[in-house]
Amino acid sequence: MQLLQTKPIKWLLLVLAWLFIGIVLVLPVGLVLVQAFASGWHTYLTTISSLVTLQAINLTVTATLISIVFNLVFGVSAAWLIAFYDFPGKRLLNALIDLPFSVSPVIAGLIFILTFGRGGWLAPLFSAIHVQIVFAPPAIFLTTVFVTFPFVAREVIPVLEAKGREEEQTAALLGASFSQILWQITFPAIKAPVAGGLVLATARALGEFGAVAVVSGNIQGKTLTLSLLVQNLYNDFKFNEAFAVATILLGSTILVVLLKQRLLKN
């Protein structure tokens, strides 16, 4: 390959690439770390171990776990259905599964306000049984599930379609049961995309901000996720505290990225 392989051009392009990544990626991430510890270790530790932070961690982790379980069950079911059977409306179903990806987070929050909030369709039903959805944890769980909705399905469907249905059909003809086929034939083939999809869903669920901001109502100790806590601290000019809480999210993000690369290698 001689094209653009002369030394000066190669170096010029490399310097440009690193400069760009340095300015828009490395510096912001470095800044989070530096500012988090700007008032010293003591402030940092007090901030990240305060009750508000722990409550925010609790809510964020709960929302993430719910999204993971939903993604696993729904994603594998949808992929099974779409890859193994022919039925009318398959393209429509595919499009509906992808829909949450093409929607602004703010709109994702809005549609749940319109469904469950004051004057929403299902509001009378839930107020009759005294369950509050909007401005309460259930809405945070619902929007988090919504924004992570397609992840596992999107990763598994192409893999399962490429694999084909022959093995499962043969097994069924030979009298294998549903669970035998699922665990012994299908699951080993889709382990990697399932894990990959779950990792992506985890990252998104941990860090979702816009959609959750719309439905949360910002009630301290009750509906603050980590991202919302970061926002509140920042808007109160508690910059170092905001960056301290941000390091929790940054740390989990880096773990997720490393996990994804690990999975891709295997």
Partner: peptide, 17 residues
């Protein structure tokens, strides 16, 4: 690897940084 960060980094963290 750095290029994967924006996919995973929470938008609020990116925003304040």
């Amino acid at each position: 690897s750095l290029l994967d960060l924006p996919f995973a980094l929470p938008t609020a963290v990116a925003g304040i940084a």
